[in-house]
Amino acid sequence: MAIEGADLIRASAYLGAGLAMGLGAIGPGVGEGMAAAKACEAIGKNPKEAGLLTRTMLVGQAVSESTGIYSLVIALLLLFVV
């Protein structure tokens, strides 16, 4: 069975999408966990600032989430657009 060019391109796009989202999920997951860990430590030391700490944690996590969202976007582009 000969593999045609278009088929090979689709196959690589699917594989690329899977790898993009899979590898791209590692960093944000670990980083957001570290942010949450430090926020927990800080609340343990100074519980009065819980509101401020939660807000700061969420903003920081949102920023580190961005690379995960880039991966998601690239994966969806590879699946449906390219």
């Binding site: 997951g29 957001e32 942010a35 949450a36 944690m57 969420l58 995960g68």
Partner: peptide
């Protein structure tokens, strides 16, 4: 915090 980390 865990819920946000779960998102990816």
């Amino acid at each position: 915090g865990q819920a946000v980390a779960e998102s990816t």
